[in-house]
Design a protein around this nucleic acid. Structure first.
Lengths: 205, 205, 205, 205
DNA sequence: GATGAATGAGCATTCATTCAT
DNA sequence: GATGAATGAATGCTCATTCAT
């Protein structure tokens, strides 16, 4: 009898709007009125679905991370089971052609990072995501080791290093695009992986 | 007759204060009153030395970049002339013990990055710094090539990649400290460099 | 569902308040807080209905001019159709008993005039009003000429001159009340009109 | 021994600067810093010669009025002694070719008028000037009457009316220049005077 | 659910005035 | 006399949040 709830739809609309606005104006600069306009809603209605602006931020981060996680899992599943193939897929997923092509997403990501200094919950979200991400890499590297590769300095450090490479490319792509030769990111990352992951040296006796 | 100008001193005080406040609160969150308090001045006086808040931002970025540039040059000068030694020095300067130990500087750096989306001049400053930075690396890599090393995929891409590693570690150190095994950054970066830079393979003829 | 808009009402309240405050304190001296207080509103609400203070100024001028225009038309319509009667009505409307009795309106008028040097749009508004005003007079004078009167030096100049008389009396009434013998304005203006408008001299051939 | 005082010179510099700045920005809009810049001085020095901004305003008004008074007396002295000639000279002095050509002076005059609502002393200055002005006219008109002219409605009212004409032309010239046919002001005023001042009608018995 | 008016605290900026040098 | 740093109060404007309708 009551009208069916459209809350989930509205929340999605609103977090999408924040993502869009925040990419250009940052979180502080994204007035509720701006978000509402971008979502095609009214300010009052935004506050009906989110009591506080901060909650929109958290919901936006959660949605972005979940989306990313999902996409990543799908791409890893498509790749073969070998650790090398998994690493390749991981890198391609993040740095391959078009992966850094969405300036809005990159910018929004950096704004979230910056905002995390002011919001414990957001910080925890991002930290947890980074840790999960690293754990995925670490697991692949441990398997590589088990498969006879040498992983330097060790799987945990190497995983963190790979994560750093990806994050660093994101930052550069977002803020100093001209600095990266177009299309070079994935290839360069692969070369770095060759450093981290070398076949067990039987030869170097 | 006239009072001697103390503007330079005051501007330094003020940019230091902004750096400090911005690390915690971001640029938007850094009220002039906060900056003034951190600098031990009054809000009116801050505006006497800087017409607009934005100018404090630019001056702060300029000072941070200049300071960094200077420190980096000094450390590169101390290292030996060989490309390997230069690369090592470069990495150590950024990721060595204690290099990422100043959370205030790291946080401020990220806030500047985030703010650069809203300020053309700041963006230009950061882009130029990134380019300069990469050029330094690229030059070293070109010399390495001239000295018989193989640089993959090519000096420009490799330089950009190294920059990305450093930036990425900065971001992780600032936002997800627990993800990086303590002290592993420099060593891992070195291993990656081993991937980028391999001795010219005589065997693979 | 939605609240009915009361914007027009509020805007009227606010422009009335500005008129009142500006008469005493001028435009610059009329703080939004003062205007709000005079209107019985809060400063925030004033800015909800007018984005910028300047817009209140323009709206106030527009309202005053429209009100005046309307009153004037009504009084001209009441007068007989003869040019002499129309001129008499015009002068009476502006300078007759009580016409200059509202010090607030007079003061506000002068403040608007002064402010017009700083605001192109306001200046355009006032210029257009003055031109309209003069055109009304000019048309009456042209009809007078058609009716056999002599208009000196010519209808356009005479109309401008009459406008000047009225404006001048306004200024004096507002700033140096003691200078005008009470009640003399309309009579004196009539005498001046006798100079501008004389019967075609058959005798003086 | 002490350096000779240059106070008078400085005060003149400063009031000239205020006149200039006020014409464009009004009194409130004329910051001490602006005045100082226009005078080629420093803000501190302005306050050395005038304790308060308001005093600059009063000094500026006093100087303008004195200058005008002096110029007017000179022009009246040049004219013949007959009342008609004196009136003609009076009108020419204010509305003749070039008399309203200085937009800065006109604008400044209106700003002073507007400001007089907020400053009792300024208001008194302007009122006194207006009265003096009218008295000069009234005296001429009384002489005209003594000389056989008929002055309508009476010398005092006619003098006030003439003053109004002049003030009104000033306002129009400053704010709605296009409304007055170029060069028509003095001629039109003369025609109005013909209305005020008619030869004693022997014929109209 | 939805709207838009209303509030009140916060903020950058301006500026007359003071004062040490 | 002259300079320019320093102060503090005032002001226009923004904005998250609340709430009556």
């Amino acid at each position: 009898m009551a009208r069916p709830s459209n809350t989930e739809e509205r929340r999605l609309q609103i977090t999408r709007a924040l993502q869009q606005v925040m990419a250009k104006q940052g979180y502080e600069g994204a007035a509720i009125a701006d978000i509402a306009r971008a979502a095609g809603l009214t300010p009052g209605l935004v506050h009906y679905h989110f009591a506080h602006k901060r909650e929109i931020l958290l919901a936006t981060a959660a949605r972005l991370l979940a989306d990313h996680q999902q996409r990543l899992q799908a791409q890893l599943a498509l790749a073969g089971p070998s650790p090398r193939a998994q690493l390749l897929a991981f890198v391609e997923a993040h740095l391959g052609q078009g992966a850094t092509a969405d300036p809005e997403a990159l910018a929004c990501w950096i704004q979230l990072t910056a905002e995390s200094f002011r919001d414990k919950k957001l910080k925890a979200q991002l930290e947890r995501a980074a840790r999960d991400w690293r754990d995925v890499l670490q697991k692949i590297l441990v398997e590589a080791e088990a498969g006879g590769e040498r992983v330097r300095p060790d799987p945990e450090a190497a995983a963190a290093g790979l994560l750093a490479v990806i994050q660093g490319y994101f930052v550069l792509a977002a803020t100093a695009r001209g600095v990266i030769p177009p299309g070079s990111a994935a290839a360069t990352a692969q070369v770095m992986i060759d450093g981290l992951l070398s076949p067990k040296p039987r030869s170097r006796r």
